[in-house]
Structures are given as structure tokens and as C-alpha cells.
Design a protein around this nucleic acid. Structure first.
Lengths: 350, 350
DNA sequence: ACGCGCAGTCAAAGCGCTTTGGCTTGCCCG
DNA sequence: CGGGCAAGCCAAAGCGCTTTGACTGCGCGT
């Protein structure tokens, strides 16, 4: 059955009534509604979404613009975010529109989305230090939620973020509590706001404990496996190597662990490693994984929150505009008191 | 400027003419067209996509339904595929609609996409042995391209696939050529068709060389890092361990390498490792990465081919219905003749 | 001088839905 | 018994675009 008209004719009802019955309006009797619903199912009728959108002016679609950087790389965390957000869209009857564009075409893409009325709102990914997107989207009057926060005006728009500062401070304190004083930081690029906050948390905890911040123990780089490996290898070759290292991503941690192993250092004994873990589904580190001690906050959960918040906005239930998620420390076997190297390998067999 | 009507009034032209001018129809004079285009830009006009879709009956949207399995996992390869396909959609003016659904709701999702006329076509991901989707989509008359192939009727629909059988046969031959005879296979789940073809290729090459296929040297499992580690560790502890191992995914290879290192085996000397590499952007193994020898075929490229093929179908240019991509061997330092363990570590320093 | 074809334009009819503003009933109550 | 009022239904007017079919000049061949 192609359209409302035919269905209503078949039923001997008006289009109005059929439409209302299907959309759950109260001014149609229950008996009629049931008859309509049955007929719709029987004839495999469903409204044409373009027509519906045109009539209502709502698209029930959320846009995600994904800038693609050099090397065609999409942040792997994106997948898990999408999984979380997608589940919510599904449940609430929204579509997810993904636009993969060159990094320099991003603003034009938002403009076009607005002009063509293709989406009801958008999610902003990976805010950077002086991010122009919030202002742009406000000026376009296109509802949005930022996954993360910019540095300025964070009160002026909606966001969902992890308390990165706190997470890294806590992780650092954990290592300090174990007795470490040479603690390295393998961070992501600091033009990303979350990386900057992470460093702040790390430095805060060091300062609290009266430990000098040593730039030689800090790196800011791409969060991928090979880079983690190289950075760690360099740290280990320095004059005064760290006894513990805080890593910003599970992917990097993979490389860090590799470098440690290569230097015959047993994690948890000869070296302590604690990683931030976005709970990437395809790595599955953690308790029963590779035994890493991690600060964990699922990125899928962030996706769910973003989606719910944005839809609430769009539908006029202006809920809380911010959500700060806390990461939690999940102990593994990769952390322990320092000095394992002195105590000797015997400790490793314990 | 909200709509065509206003714009045409402002120009003193009919909606027809303005629409035609904007859409590049020939029956409007160049002078007029230019005037219209300028005015459209000046007033920031762009057609309402819902209205256009309703009028034309085309959505210019491609659907991807992504089944989400236990643990909310989306295949990480998906990201790169999307990047490739997304670039094509962009270039050709299509939107990408992604629907993340419970694995058991997949068919219903396709049905709904058709009923609501939400998409012009779909891409089918991850075909399994007896995949019902091609038949379903054919019966729905919804254009589709499969990324991969099913086992039956592969001639009856469009697909883009890598010659997995050949790739694994070649990789195995490479190892055999180096002198290996105990060659292990760390494969993905064999209900996935590509994994099955990979095993066939592997077995074919062994048989050619008169080497018995040993089930103890074969595993079929999830292609993630921790699993790769465990499988490899088990192989190495067996009575007659392999001297070479063929791995189905870079992610698994990470684990395999780890297990090798843990057993003090230097890749390329004590053990040969060759991995299939989908060229995952966030791993960046290969030449300047971790030195793995790989069989490579970019998954982003597959995405591009799928997108182009599907759009060609939709637009009526029924091009070639199949595309078989060949993977190519990229030599690294992780392969070498067997017996390195006998020749001693000295060889490693070479 | 006349008709013809062509380039350029337009009015109006959809596309398939939602929604406004009535129009019937039937029933209750004064 | 008549007016008022829900409850239930409907016709028709959009939503903003594309596309059909028709109309106007105008130059050209005969």
C-alpha cells in the first residue's frame, strides 16, 4: 500500500482520521484506531518520511559531522560513541546522519545542514582549544551538544564531558600513594581540550605532593599504538627514567606496555602503568583483559548522554545543560610500589 | 530567505524558472541563470531537502545498518570503511544514514527503511555463511551492495570484496618459500565468510606444498588484541610449536607479537609473523610502524568502491556488479627463514 | 505575408503527509 | 423539549519543491 489516501479509502475513513489514529491522537475512538492500525499492518503501510518531514517541519534527524584529517583517519573512539548515541536515536525514533568531510569544510557543512533543513540538531565532536563551532552553531540557531568542552564560555551551551582533570589527578595521586615520584605522562595532543585538562590534573596532583613537574616526563602526541611505543621507549632510555607512567589512551597503553616488555620491565613490579580507558570495545582491556590498571569512563555512555540531551533540547524539554561524568579507577596488576627493579625479577613471579 | 516562492517573487520570475536555473536545466537562458544563482547566494537560499525529496521521490541517502552485538561492540574496521564511503557520498551529493540496531532487529530495520522510503539503497556489512539479507533486499526491491560476499549466489547481486582466498594462499606460500612447514593460522570467526575463505587459501597453499593441515595450528576467534595474545601463547606452549604464524587482523597481530615477545622470540628471527592488514588508520602498522610483514588491502578503498557501485546502480548506470580487490604483500621485518632459534640470537642483531 | 519552430518563461498540478477549523451526532441537563 | 457540549469524524489548506503542458515572442524559410 503506497499512501495514506489509498489506505483511508480502503477503510472508508478520511485521511485525517487515519493519520490521527496512527499518530495516537486522542480524538479518534479506540475502536477506529484499532481498525486503522490493523489495516495499516495488513497492508504494510507506513508514512512516507519525506512527506511527513515536509508537513511537520521536523526532520527527526541528528547530524554528526566528522572531519577527516590527513591519512583519512577517523578517531577510533568515534565508533563507540556512535554505538551509544545510535542506541538512543533508535529508541527515541531519530535518525543519525553522518557527514564525513575534509577538516576545512566543517563550517560549510554545518551551514548547509541548516540551510537545507536536513537535521534538527548536531553533535559536536572533539572540541579544540579555541573552538569556533559553538559560536557558529549558536549564530545559525542550530541546536547542538558538544561532546567535551571548549575552554571558554562552557556555561553558554550544552555539553557532556568526563571530568578529565579530576580523573588524571586521581590517577596521579594513586601512583603517588604507592610511593612513586618519577611519574611520566603520555598524553594526547594538547590542542584537544581534554588533553589539556588531563595534564592540569596530573600537574595538580604532583604539586599537591610537592613533586616538581618535569617536562622531560611529559609528552603530547597522537594517541595510537606506535606512538605510545616510541614515547615510552624514549622515556626508558633517559637518564632518570620514570618508575610509573600515566597514559591517556588504551591504544597508546598498548604501545607503552610493548616498550616496557621490550626492556624486560614487568608492569606492576618494575614499572607501574595506569591508563585512561575509554572502554573501547575492540580492545577489551581491563579486569580480564591485559590486566592494566585503568581510569575508566565508557565513551558509549557519553554518546548516550549527548543524544538524550540533544533530543530533549530539540523537543523543548530543556533539561540540564551539562553533564560531567566521573571516571573510576579500576585496579589491575600493572601498578604497584616502585623499586621492583631493585627487588629483582623474583617479585615478578609472585 | 526561506523558500523558492519568495526568491522567485523577489526576482520577478516564476518558481519553475528559478528551480530550473538552480538545477542546471538547459531551457533557461544563461543570463537568467546567473541572475538566479547570484540572488540565491545573496539571500542564502537553498532548497528544503524534505520538500525536494517528496517531489522527486529520491532521498539521495544511503543506509548502513550496523548490528550491535553483545558488549555493544561495533567492528572497529567499520570506521575506516565509513571514511571511504563517506568521501564518495560527499562528492556525489548523497547522505549517509547509519542505523545502529540490535542484531536481531536487522531485517525489520531494512523493511522499515523501505516502507518509509528513507533511503535509496543500503550497504550490507559483514556477510555471514548463510546470509539472508541479499534475498530479503531483493524481495524488498531495495538496491544494495554487499561488502564481502556470501557463499551462495554471489553472481546474483553486487558486491565488493577482497580476494581473501588468494591473499592467504599467497601469504602462506611466502612463508613456505622461506622454508617454514609449521605454519599456524590465527583466524577470525569462521561464520564470517571472509574468514572461511582465508582458511581455504591457507589450506590450499599448504596442500600444494604437500604439508598436512594441522587443526592444532588453527584457531578461529574474535579478532581483538587479547584474544590474539592468548591464542598465540597457547600455540607456543604446545609440543610442536609453529615457526611461523599467519594472522587475520592487525589487532590480533598486536596480541600475537606480544605473546612472542613474552616468550623471548624475536619476530623475523625466532618466529615469522605475517598479518593481514586492513590498513586501520589508528594502528598504522606496516613499513614504518611495528615492522610487520603484512598482506594489505585498504578497507577505506573497499568503502569507496561500495559507495560508487551503489550510487551507480541507483542512478541507473548499472556498472559492473562485482569488484574483487587484490591484497598485496608488504614485506616487513617480522618474517624470515625458520630456525632462527637454532641459529641463535646473534641473527637478531643483524 | 504567413506559418513554423525554437528559446524562454509560466501557471498549475502534483508529491504524501499534518493540521486547522468545521460539521454531525448523540446525550445530558435544566 | 430544546440548548449545550463532547466525541468522533471530515474537507481542505498547507508544507516547499519538481515537472508537465502550455503560452509568448521572435527569427526564418518560402
Amino acid at each position: 500500500m503506497a499512501n495514506l489516501k489509498e489506505l483511508s479509502e480502503k477503510l472508508g475513513l478520511s485521511q485525517t482520521t487515519v493519520s490521527r489514529a496512527l499518530n495516537g491522537y486522542p480524538e479518534v475512538s479506540e475502536a477506529t484506531r484499532q481498525r486503522v492500525i490493523d489495516a495499516a499492518r495488513e497492508h504494510n503501510y507506513a508514512p512516507n518520511s519525506s512527506a511527513r518531514r515536509l508537513a511537520t517541519g521536523k526532520t527527526r534527524t541528528i547530524g554528526h559531522v566528522v572531519p577527516i584529517s590527513k591519512h583519512d583517519m577517523i578517531n577510533p573512539h568515534f565508533t563507540d560513541f556512535i554505538a551509544g548515541a545510535g542506541a538512543v536515536y533508535n529508541r527515541r525514533g531519530y535518525d543519525m546522519l553522518i557527514s564525513v568531510v575534509d577538516a576545512d569544510k566543517e563550517t560549510e557543512t554545518y551551514r548547509a545542514m541548516k540551510r537545507n533543513r536536513r537535521v534538527d540538531g548536531v553533535i559536536v565532536h572533539g572540541p579544540v582549544a579555541n573552538d569556533a563551532r559553538p559560536a557558529l552553531l549558536k549564530s545559525l540557531d542550530l541546536p547542538f551538544v558538544v561532546h567535551g568542552r571548549t575552554l571558554q564560555d562552557e556555561a553558554s551551551y550544552c555539553w557532556v564531558d568526563v571530568n578529565n582533570r579530576r580523573a588524571f589527578a586521581e590517577a596521579t595521586r594513586h601512583l603517588i600513594g604507592l610511593g612513586h615520584r618519577r611519574i611520566a605522562l603520555v598524553n594526547g595532543w594538547e590542542h584537544m581540550v581534554f588533553a589539556r585538562r588531563r595534564r592540569e590534573g596530573y600537574e595538580e596532583a604532583l604539586r599537591e605532593a610537592g613533586i616538581a613537574v618535569d617536562p622531560l616526563l611529559m609528552s603530547s602526541n597522537e594517541m595510537i599504538e606506535p606512538v605510545g611505543y616510541e614515547v615510552m621507549a624514549a622515556f626508558l632510555q633517559s637518564d632518570d627514567p620514570p618508575t610509573a607512567v600515566l597514559v591517556a589512551s588504551a591504544l597508546s597503553a598498548l604501545g607503552v606496555m610493548g616498550a616496557a616488555r621490550e626492556n624486560d620491565l614487568v608492569p606492576g613490579t618494575d614499572i607501574s602503568i595506569i591508563s585512561y580507558d575509554d572502554n573501547l570495545s575492540f580492545l577489551d582491556i581491563g579486569p580480564d583483559g591485559m590486566g592494566l590498571t585503568v581510569m575508566r569512563s565508557g565513551i558509549g555512555e557519553a554518546g548516550r548522554h549527548c543524544a538524550d540531551m540533544l533530543i530533549d533540547m530539540i523537543e523543548g524539554r530543556r533539561g540540564a545543560g551539562h553533564k560531567l561524568l566521573e571516571a573510576s579507577l579500576v585496579p589491575g596488576t600493572s601498578t604497584g610500589p616502585p623499586g621492583g627493579a631493585v627487588a629483582g625479577k623474583s617479585a615478578a613471579s609472585r
